[in-house]
Simulated assay, not measured.
Amino acid sequence: MYSYLSLALMIYILGVLGSRGSAQDVSKLSLKYYDKSCPNAQQLVRTEMECAVRENPRNAALMLRLHFHDCFVQGCDGSVLLDDTETLVGEKKASQNLNSLIGFDLVDRIKNQLEGECPGVVSCADLLAIAARDAVILVGGPYWDVPVGRQDSKTANLEKANTDIPAPTQNLFALVTNFLGKGLSVQDMVALVGSHTIGMARCVNFRERIYGDFRATSDSDLNSMAYLSKLQSLCPERGHDNKLSPMDYVSPNMFDNIFYRSLLNGKGLLNSDQEMYSSFTGIETAKLVKTYAADPLAFFKHFSDAMVKMGNITNPEGGEVRKNCRFVNT
């Protein structure tokens, strides 16, 4: 018990220090920010997202992931969307982004619609925040109001992208510390990780798990062993790094609480996910996993609240409204 309390205290201290180092200014965000300058902005985003998700339900997860990876580096400022140039190094080649983040063409499509309606008005950062909300709704998830008025960063930060975005092999200590450093609580973390209910993972990110402690955490029944066998067939010990598997193998295209039930059964695909329930230090996180597995409404409420909180992490340096989400204005 002493070691757990010491660990929890250390996490708390690190979290406080981290949150002090990332100033948040949400004074300019408002639900009515575009009411006069671009009143159809949210409807334009929604229409494009409806088409995209109808074409391929996976587009919902792609947009949600882009918003998450954007907010964890410099705040929600569209920096994740910047391409490399002679004078700027973007974040797309970061370890957690390379060969993982896609959906940039969809962002371009939505941005073109917004620029056609209201040139130079709606930021790429706001586009991601609105599109992520709509993505969740379109696959059965909850609604939340999205405050808008974010500015697009004129810079990117590859170093922070490599260190600040949670990794799938992280242990619980590192994961909680990471979220606390962004001003997000343990409850926020467990709820936000629920977005994996519509996510896909690459073989390279779950190989260690399926050839490691998967058997130790899961039931030894035929169903569990058949699932493990399927995963190992898809993802051998060497090669096929980019093969994909859903993190919710029961209902991968529906935003629901089945993901948490898989953690209760020890079948989480990623080590970082299963740690929330199986780690001996995860007393609080395990309780939350149990709550969300039993009560989808509680999950939806906490997820919505956490998405607003995460979306309110802005870049204190400010920026601009990019005309093209891939490049700063000239």
Rank of each mutant, 00 (worst) to 15 (best):
D164C: 13
S123C: 14
K154R: 15
E115F: 09
K154C: 14
G181I: 08
S153G: 09
Y143N: 14
A191N: 00
T177W: 08
Q187L: 15
G116C: 11
D126W: 07
I165Q: 01
I165L: 00
A132V: 13
C124Y: 10
D134S: 04
I110E: 09
I137L: 05
A167V: 11
K160H: 13
G183P: 01
T163K: 15
N157I: 07
V186S: 09
V193Y: 03
V136Y: 07
C118N: 15
Q170I: 00
A167I: 10
N171D: 14
L180H: 07
S195I: 10
I165S: 08
P142C: 06
V193G: 06
H196E: 15
D145I: 07
Q113K: 15
A167T: 10
I137C: 07
D126M: 10
S185P: 03
A129S: 15
G120S: 06
A156N: 04
L184M: 12
S185G: 10
S185V: 12
N171W: 00
A191Y: 00
D164R: 09
G116D: 03
V121M: 02
L114V: 07
S195A: 15
T197S: 12
P147N: 12
V136W: 10
T177Y: 09
W144F: 14
A131V: 03
V186R: 06
T169K: 13
I137D: 00
L158E: 02
K160E: 11
G181H: 12
S195G: 15
A167L: 13
A167D: 15
V136L: 13
R133S: 02
E115L: 06
I130R: 01
S185R: 08
M189C: 11
Y143G: 04
I198D: 00
D188I: 03
V176A: 00
H196D: 15
L180P: 11
T177N: 10
P166R: 09
L172P: 06
V121Q: 04
Q170G: 04
G194N: 07
N171S: 13
A129M: 12
V190Y: 09
E115S: 09
K160P: 07
S195E: 13
P142V: 03
L158Q: 11
E159P: 11
Q151K: 12
V176T: 10
I110Q: 05
P147H: 12
I165F: 02
T169N: 14
A191V: 06
P119I: 08
A174R: 03
